[in-house]
Amino acid sequence: MGVLTLDILTTAAILFAVAAGLMIILGVMKLINFAHGAFLTTGGYVAYLTGAAGISPWLSIPLAGVLGMAAGLVIERVIVRPLYARPLDAILATWGLGIVIGQVITLTFGRGVQFAPSPLSGTTALFGVDYSAYRLAVALIAVLIAGALSALLSFTRFGLNARAVIMNETLARGLGIDSAKVRAITFGMGAGLACAAGALITPLLSVDPNMGLPWLVNSFMLVMISGVSFPSLLIASIVLGGAQVLVSTYVSPILGGMTIVALAALVLRFNPRGFSRA
């Protein structure tokens, strides 16, 4: 039982960390960032390069975050901003951007599978079971990210502006909030979060040019049913992640892989607003 609980909690934490970047971009910019998967992959390669350079694997996560943020700011300026008035085209542009990033990675590193070292190896005894130490660390980091993001939105000037833009952008602009700046920072943060999440999950996975794709699908589903709110994203991660672990454990891991998508579709069918209170 202990193992099952830990499986559910750590799976939910990983899902949350991976989906957070997608959600803040959706919230502020009303834009589904289909390059999210490619950002995750980029984070994975940052972790790989950090490992190859002999730098502590712990540092790969903040490094990826900073790099992702910088890249996000540039991408926002060059690709996304000119398309603000054409939301559908902007979504297509991020899809194309994802393909370009994937191809650049393939050309640079090849299609082969690479490896990033894990900062923690072995197991830790918890609730009477030996459990993967790094998964527990990932869960802890995810909780920290959630806390930091919530604090950012609730207690800072930027958070106030961002919430204003989320609620009513026209009105926010009328009140003198520089919504273009808020959008730019948000896209940078979203990209940074995605890269950091990629570096975070990489020690559990392998690094290859397509590693982000399955995560993009799951993140998308989670964000669709959670709406724009960190608490509801947390709930969605626990419910869907938990369902995935339960189905995988008691039915079949093959069905488990489809659980998130199937369940998200069901939730949206019966409650189009998903878990969001807004």
Partner: peptide, 20 residues
């Protein structure tokens, strides 16, 4: 005897089954 789809990367449940 457990399987995961070819693009699956999360072996959590499979490993827990292996343990038990």
């Amino acid at each position: 005897e457990e399987y995961l789809p070819m693009d699956g990367s999360d072996w959590t449940a499979v490993i827990s089954k292996l343990r038990s």
